[in-house]
Amino acid sequence: MEPLIEARSLGKVFPMGGGPVHALRDISVQIAAGEYLTIRGPSGCGKSTLLHILGCVDTPSSGTLRFDGRDVSALPDHARSDLRLRSIGFVFQRFFLLPMLTAAENVDVPQAEAGVSRADRKRRTAELLDYVGLGHRAGHRPSQLSGGEAQRVAIARALANRPRLLLADEPTGELDRANGEHIAELLDRVQADGTTVVVVTHDAALAERAGRRLVMRDGLIEREEHAR
């Protein structure tokens, strides 16, 4: 079976004043559809850079990336935008919700951009907010939500267009233990419902929940662990 994501010899170099910085060196990884993968490592090891490249937010300096069998490593910007909109969901440490919109409107935005009809959007938004346990907070703005609630809205937004891949960058990084646990359970559920989940985290407990764990160091995959 063909993997959902296939990265071969990915490299990423950032030109800096003091000379080029090699954020990623010869990374190769395959991620199957429906898999739950976590990436761990010390700060600056390149795990977020890898996540951004896997999510088509950034492009690799070298190597190839295939998404669902299609080479996406050199796609033009608009094509990468379309791919992100329809096939990839993002969750970030700092939620990145649009502050002037309500929870429901934040979930509505990607669907509207994808051309979903108003009626379908309304139904899907209600369904997703219920899914993350925030149906009663639909009309609240991000500033009126707790960190855990905001992150759950961010997950609902990431799932809005039924992506095949959900990428999360330190999703529990700004949450207390209880809220972090809640988010971890939600990610488990998302994966159990068939979405491929890739999480970058420092949180060992969160990382342990995945079926496969990559540990990175200095832009390389140091080791790969599998759940027992």
Binding site: S81, R84, L85
Partner: peptide, 16 residues
């Protein structure tokens, strides 16, 4: 700046 960044991450095209 941040709002535009968020929209770009969601998948909004530059032209949009």
């Amino acid at each position: 700046r941040a709002t535009v960044g968020m929209l770009r991450l969601i998948g909004f095209r530059r032209s949009r």
